[in-house]
Computed example of a mutant assay.
Amino acid sequence: MLAVETKKTVKKAVTPDEGIGAALRRARNARELSGEALASATGLSRRTIIKIEQNDESVAFGSYRAVAHALDLDWLMDVFSRDANQGTTQPPRFYLSGASALSLPPEDGRPPALWYSSSLSNPKSWRIAGKHVTHTGYLMGVLDLWDATTAIARYGVTVPCIWAASPERAVFDLLVHHCEIKRKPVPNIQASDIDDVVDLNKVARWIKQCEAFLSRQGAKTIQDWLEDSCQ
């Protein structure tokens, strides 16, 4: 990590947004680090820092990496990069998540975590990240999202393209949506109901990585929900 002096991290609730730039901006603000100080530490201009925080894709991907490295957030670059060669930083605008994604057999061949598959044949009942569930692209980029166009066609629905969250990403989205954004427990789904299919330890690791972007209350509520399966 580049040598950057920062003050103690201040945890604040965040508003969902897409793109790695928003995540880097929030991380810088949480560390009470000025844009000028970050520019000095990375060797980039202040204008480039501004463009990065606005998610300007005209900026070289290496500059995004330099900022993430300075903020000790190298892992962000991996989860936001859909293609390591192209360096894409944007997740899809919408994707299946929540109960809909948990009801869809994932691409790795596991059975669905929930059995609401009848709802998948009716697009009006789909739970969509970015509409009905918090879009966590600002935290997770494209990590554990997959092209579910062919899978959803098995339910009699033909769409040009639809992405879906893996079971773990769907649970992560639900936890952030309810515990962090709405400040309420996750309704109707308990960890013990789905831990035979969903890797909740993986979800817990993601939550740990993202703690700097969560409020203390939100992080505690999430941990309380997870603790019966993630000792």
Rank of each mutant, 00 (worst) to 15 (best):
E53D: 08
S40R: 12
G87D: 01
V67K: 04
G43S: 07
T42Q: 02
R82E: 14
L71V: 00
L114V: 12
G19A: 02
Y95C: 06
A68M: 01
G137T: 07
E18A: 15
Q90Y: 08
N85G: 11
Y64S: 04
A23I: 05
D56T: 01
Y64I: 03
D56R: 01
L104Y: 04
L104R: 06
G43L: 06
Y116C: 13
Y116M: 15
P91E: 11
A66E: 05
G109R: 07
L76H: 05
R127V: 13
K131H: 12
V79F: 00
W126C: 13
L44F: 05
R110W: 03
L73S: 10
D72I: 01
S103W: 04
V79H: 01
S45F: 07
Y116Q: 15
A37F: 01
G19T: 04
L114R: 07
T48P: 00
R28F: 02
A113C: 10
P16Q: 02
P106K: 07
D83W: 03
S125K: 14
I20N: 01
V14M: 13
M140N: 13
S117W: 11
A66K: 11
I52Y: 00
L76P: 00
S119T: 12
R28Q: 05
Q90F: 11
E53R: 06
P16L: 03
L76Y: 07
Q86P: 00
R25T: 06
R26C: 05
A99T: 14
E18F: 08
H132K: 12
A41D: 00
D17Q: 15
S118W: 07
F94P: 02
T15K: 14
V59D: 02
A99L: 12
R110L: 14
A70H: 00
K51N: 15
S118C: 11
A41K: 01
G19H: 00
G43H: 04
E32Y: 02
A113G: 10
N122T: 14
E32L: 13
L120G: 12
G87I: 00
L96Q: 06
R127D: 13
V79S: 10
S97K: 06
D17K: 14
M77K: 03
H135C: 09
S117T: 11
S125V: 09
A70D: 00
Y64L: 04
I128T: 09
P16H: 03
K124P: 03
A37T: 10
S121L: 10
G62Q: 09
Q90N: 12
A99W: 07
P106Y: 08
R26S: 10
T89N: 08
Y138A: 15
G109T: 05
I20T: 01
H132M: 11
A84D: 11
A113V: 08
V14Y: 10
K124H: 13
A70P: 00
G43M: 04
G19P: 00
A113F: 08
G35F: 04
L139E: 06
D56I: 01
S125E: 15
S100L: 08
S118Q: 15
T42K: 02
P123W: 05
G137M: 06
R127L: 15
G43P: 03
S58G: 14
P106V: 09
D78N: 12
L76K: 02
A41I: 00
S97G: 11
R26H: 10
R93V: 14
N122V: 13
R25P: 04
E53I: 07
S103L: 12
S45C: 10
R26L: 12
D78I: 08
P112I: 05
W75M: 09
